[in-house]
Structures are given as structure tokens and as C-alpha cells.
Design a protein around this nucleic acid. Sequence first.
DNA 1: TGGTAATCGAGACGGTACGTCCCGTCTTAAG
DNA 2: CTTAAGACGGGACGTACCGTCTCGATTACCA
Lengths: 217, 217, 217, 217
Amino acid sequence: MSVLSGVSSEKPRRSAHSHAAVLRAAADLAGRLGYANASIEQIAAEAGVGKQTIYRWWPNKAALFIEVYRGLVPADIVTDDTGSLAGDLEALLARLSHLYCDTPAGNILAGLIAEAQTAAEPADQLRRTYVAPRRAIIGSIFERAAARREIEALDDPGFASDLISGAVWFRLLLGRRQLDRRFKKRLVDAVLQGVARKPARAASALQSRGRDRKGAR
Amino acid sequence: MSVLSGVSSEKPRRSAHSHAAVLRAAADLAGRLGYANASIEQIAAEAGVGKQTIYRWWPNKAALFIEVYRGLVPADIVTDDTGSLAGDLEALLARLSHLYCDTPAGNILAGLIAEAQTAAEPADQLRRTYVAPRRAIIGSIFERAAARREIEALDDPGFASDLISGAVWFRLLLGRRQLDRRFKKRLVDAVLQGVARKPARAASALQSRGRDRKGAR
Amino acid sequence: MSVLSGVSSEKPRRSAHSHAAVLRAAADLAGRLGYANASIEQIAAEAGVGKQTIYRWWPNKAALFIEVYRGLVPADIVTDDTGSLAGDLEALLARLSHLYCDTPAGNILAGLIAEAQTAAEPADQLRRTYVAPRRAIIGSIFERAAARREIEALDDPGFASDLISGAVWFRLLLGRRQLDRRFKKRLVDAVLQGVARKPARAASALQSRGRDRKGAR
Amino acid sequence: MSVLSGVSSEKPRRSAHSHAAVLRAAADLAGRLGYANASIEQIAAEAGVGKQTIYRWWPNKAALFIEVYRGLVPADIVTDDTGSLAGDLEALLARLSHLYCDTPAGNILAGLIAEAQTAAEPADQLRRTYVAPRRAIIGSIFERAAARREIEALDDPGFASDLISGAVWFRLLLGRRQLDRRFKKRLVDAVLQGVARKPARAASALQSRGRDRKGAR
DNA sequence: TGGTAATCGAGACGGTACGTCCCGTCTTAAG
DNA sequence: CTTAAGACGGGACGTACCGTCTCGATTACCA
């Protein structure tokens, strides 16, 4: 079962058709014009829907686009087990790169984060929709690694997640809009050595990394 | 001399007073209402300035706020040498925390990044005003550490900078709006172990901090 | 039996209760907000009725309010014989004054007339509901006067009616919203001398009136 | 000097062109669709003007249309002296008939009167723009007649005016939208006999008119 | 006496218009 | 010739109603 599912039963949405059309139009326009320039007016027109229908179901633009964002994140962003922590992280980075470069998701997310600076409610929803699932995904990757005794269990998986998310985010939104091979490599390395600890008694593992335990807080 | 200064000689600004008043009003309004809700109209009114005066000197809202942002970053964000890499990073984090939590800088930056997703020119200016100076600062911190032979010189200081900036950014804009002690500690640790390498023969460096290092890659 | 009654057998109205509630709510709202500001939406809400129920029984707002108007005109607006033309006219004016000043009828009528300028169907209905009955009433007053040989029969009673109705209308809708004693006096006088002719051999009639310049009423 | 002139110097209207275009478009649309259906939105569009420009200069639709109405009333509605009261009144009726049948003035006036039932301010303005000038015109006709000793001076010229205006109004707005020859004749007769009094020693006056009881109509 | 159709309230739907805010440009008058 | 002030054409906001359209839930009539 997906981490991001099970959210659709909020209200008795009467017109499933209109609902879908609005989300589609919103994603479209955000892709073409950017979050800020995608007006409710245009979205309504493009969806062939009255403005009121939008305002009926979403309290504000942010709420609408949070649902749009949710729809853009594919279920399979939670990756299969590749057998190694590095492999899992690389697979995730590939999927994030695709999500933010080939869909309007990056643009939308930037707009949402900007809006979240001022309004409290969008901020909360954004944390629930974006931060929490992201931490869940990355957390489970580390759990898997710990389960296969590749590393010890992290005592703050949220931090690891934020480190990765922040780096990706920074690179994509302020850089060249792509995650090059080198960047991905460095990021995986930095995470492996910066936040992960080798398991205590791990003969073979000790050789491969030789990192010791005391002092790293 | 500051890394971020020396940019003011663009045009023969007739009214230095008006210029300052606009920047002050813009910072004020962004602080109170957020970047998106601070309209040129209000800024002009609050500054006691004609709208045209704003449009004369800045091509668009983003350009104005980039200058506002620049003005909010204090010269002393480039810290003195504390004698250790960890110390320097901690000092920087403290200053960033202050900048983004106690001034409208975070709010403005979020708005600018959102705008940069759509428009090319603000994106460029933003990279020049924000990304580049930030990399310069962090780069110089690592250079200092290499000079005192605490670490080897990094072969990609930009990556280290982005890793730190991204993490801070993520935490501040999507989290609790503060960098708690634990987070700062973890981030410094992760950077030290994740991107820095000990110098080949590192006798003196070991002394400079009680932290032991043997075997870190 | 009233001149304006006997119109209710159009359809098998299922819910007499709803029907009445709608008319009541409409009259109420028109009184409080004016014809134009009384929306079908509010009327439905205030009547505790679905909008469809209103649209089912009345083709448009004008039709609804024509029925409301009809309901506001009391049966006894057709006055008893006071014995003289002047007396009958004065009695009518008193009733009209009450109707237009103490009920929303004036407000509604103004709205209906405005609407009738554009739409043909409301115009027709308005003539049937308002102009025709008014002419009938005033016509019968003059007939009564002719029958008692106070005046000769008018050859255009419609004109006399319009003259009176117009004057009342003008005064009420554009003036001080009341018919003062002096106005009523002058109007009756003007009608008596302006449209009525004394009967050819009118000995008795002259007595029955004894009205001349000085001391009328 | 015209009774209805001297009103244009209210504010420093910046764009005389826009001002005229709005009035023209409003008159046009009211003529085509009626007062109620002429929306500010359409007027702005047809005039090639921003909506705000309309709201800037007129507080509401009624105020705008009062100015439109004022512009539709021709200066020469104040007629030359025809030499007799009957002639003057007939000339006025002819002009009113034209005004209300061949221009949107009637439609607009109906809308304004309806609106005046609810709002106080439009009601006042309407009295100033419509009722007062009308009374002035008709009053001066009667004054002229008194001056040439055709009748005695009226002690309530306002009543005479309202009687005429009301009759015309009623006929035009609720009838066949024209003032036929017969109606005009009857109205002039009724006014002459109903509100005007022959002068006490009226030898000359009788000559000047040659009109007496027999033969009228 | 149970079935079935019309009617009921509620209110969602695609729309139009409202009156307001702001955009970026243009005009005016004062200095 | 630059200001502050603010009008201009325009686009979007979020709201109120329009008249039509589904919904179940009564309800009243026929079977």
C-alpha cells in the first residue's frame, strides 16, 4: 500500500468529472505558465468549469495545487529493494529527478513553499503532503538497509531525509534543473558516510569502511 | 570588504532618499505580508514614492527584492576564523538561522525562488546574488580548513555548499522555522564526515579538535 | 367578489404550503431590500423551499412578483358608494396611499414596470394585473357618478384612470412617499373639472354637488 | 441659459475621451438591452475602457445613468413661445413623446425610478435631474401663459407638472409606447380646465385663445 | 396496501456580473 | 527633467445569483 494514498474520501464530490478536469487543467497551466501565473480564472476556463466549483472544493489556490502535486507523484516513487542502500538511494534520486524535471511538480512545489511562508494552513498541509511522505520513503530505505545489516538503524532518519531532500531541492530549483551523474554520486556518498553508521559487529562490513563508533555523538 | 557589496553603481540614481525608502518599505511589507502579497502599489505608497519611480529603477518585482535581499544579508555573515572547520560552520549556521528567522529574508528568498522557476532573468540574478556568494563563503571556510591542514582541499566545494544550504533551507522553510542545537550538530557532523577528507598526515589537525578521525575514508 | 381574484386554478399545485411561503418570503424581501435586490435564491432560502420549486411554478421573477402584487392589493380597494364622485375618488386615493406606502406594493410595482420595458411578456401580464383592474375600478366609479346623474358618462374612462394613476404614481415614486391632503384635494378637483362634464340638464345634479370654487370639502 | 446645463465641472476628469465613450456605450446598451441588463462590465468593454475607470467617476450604476439621461434630454426641450398655453403644452408633449419613444430615455428612466425606491441617494439625484427640471419647464410654460394674461398664475405649479408628467409617464411605460393625437388632446384639455383658471376679467385673454367650451375636441 | 411516479428540500453545476486590487504604462503639475 | 500623484486599459480576485441539473426522502395516487 502506498504511503501517499488513501486521501480521496474527503467529501461527497458530486462531479468526479469536473474534479478531474480541474486538476488536469491546473497541472497543465502550472507547467506552461508557472504556479504564480496560473490563475484560478484560467484553470476554470480551461477545465470548462465554473469558478465557484473550484472555490467550493478547495479553500484556496494552495490547497488545489497540493492536490495537484499529490497527483503528480507516482505511486512507484517508493522503489523496490535494489539490495543495497546506495542502490536504493540512486533509484530514488532518479525518480525525483524525473518528477521535478519532466513534470510541473518542481515549479508547483516552489510556489507552494513560497506560499507556505505566509499562510499557516498551506504550510501544514504541505508538510503533511510533501515532507512527511518524503521522510517516510527515505526512512524506509534506511530501515531496509538496517534490516539487511548494511548499516545500523538511524536515530534520526528525519535528518537524513531532509539532508537529501534539501540538496536535491537546492540543485533543482536554483541550478541547472537536472541532477547530473556526479551530483548523485556525491550525494549518495555524503549520505553513506555522513549519516549512516556501520553495524557494530560486522566483520566484512568493517573492512569495507573501517569507520568507528565512539564520538560521532 | 564584503563578498556581497559593490553593486550599487548601476545608474545615476537621482534620489538616494527615495531609493532607500523603497527598499525599506519593501522589506517591511514583505515581512508583514509575505513576498507575494507585498504589491508594488503598497510599497510605493508606504515609501511615499510614485510607482513610476520604482519601475524606473527596477525592471520588476524580483529585481527589487533581490536588492532588498542583498541589503538584509549582513556583511559579517562571513565569519572570522574560529580555528576549526566545525567552529566556522557552526558560526555560519548561527548567522543563517538569525538571517532567516529574524528578518524577512527567508520569506523573500522563498518568493524569489518560486519566481525564478518561471522567469529566466530573475533566476540568473538570484544565482548571482544568493547561490554564488553562499558558495564563496562556504568555500572559503573549507579553504581555511585546508590551509590549516585540518582537511584536504575539496574537489567540489560547490557541492558541499549546496548540501549545507539545501539542508538549512529545507529545515527553515518547511519545518519549525528554527535551527535547533541538535540539527546544527548533526549537519556539521554529516558535512565533516560526508564531504571532508582528512589530510594524509594530519598530526596538527588532530590537535585542533578532540574529534578523532582515523579511517574516515 | 374582487375584480382581481379568481386566478389560482392554473395547475394542481401540490404543496399549497410552499406556494404561500414563497409569496410571503418574496413580499418580505422586496419590502426589506427592494424588488431588484430580492433574489430568487434568498426567497427560496427564506421560504424554506428549493429553488426548483419556485422555477416550477413561475417562469421568471416578474411573474412571481406579479402574483405577489396581486396578493397585496386588498379586495376592498373597490370602494363602496360614498354617494358622490369626489367622495369615491377620495376613498380610492386613501386606499392607494395605504397600499403603496405601507406595503411593498409600490416598490414591487416600480420594479415590475422597469422590467416591463425590456421584456414583452411581463409587460402584458402587468397590464392585465395592474392597468386593467385599475381602469375597471376607476371606470366603475365614474359609471356610478353618471348613473346618479352627477356627471355625463365619460367617452374615454381609460384616460381618466391613467390621469389619476399617473399622478399618484409620480407623486409616490418620485416624491415624499405620501399623498398629502392638499395633493388629494387638487387631484380630485382637477379630475372633476378636467375630465368630467356636468350633465346637460343638471338641476338636481348641481344640488347634489354644490361644489364650486370656495369651500369644497 | 438652459435649465439643465452647467453641470459638467464636477471634477478634473482626466480623460474626456473615456468619459464620453462610457456615456455613449451606456446609452447604447440601455437602448439595446434595457437598463437592468446593461452591465457595467459590458459598458466598459463596449467603451474600450477599464471597469475601474467607470467606478472611479460614478459611485454606482444609477449615478452613471442619471448622467446618461441628462445627456439624452435635448436643450430645446424648453420650447419657444407658441403664443398659447395649449400650443406650448402640445409642443412639450411632442418633444417628450420623441424623447421617450425614440431614445433609450424612457427605458433608463424606468430603471432609475425602480432603483430610487430602495436607495436614497439615487432618489435624490433623480429628483434633482428629472423632477425639478421638468417642473421648471412646465412651470415656466404656465408663467408665460399668466404673463400674457391667458390664465391666472397657478398657486401650485408643481402639481400641474406632476399631473402632466404622471400621465405621460403612465401612458408611455405601461401602454403602447406612444402618445397618440387623441391622448395629447385630452391631456391638454384636462390641464386647461382642471388646473388653470381663467383670469378674473379676461376679455383680452379670451381673444388671445379663441378657445372655449364648445368645439374643444 | 404496496408500487410508482411526481414533488419536495437541498444544493452542485456552468455561467455572468459584481466591485476591488493590482499590474505596468502614461499624463499632469510642482519643484 | 525628475518627482509624487494618480488616471489609464486590462486581468484576476473571491462572492452572489442566475436558471438548469441531479440527488434522496417524502408524499399521494393508483393498482
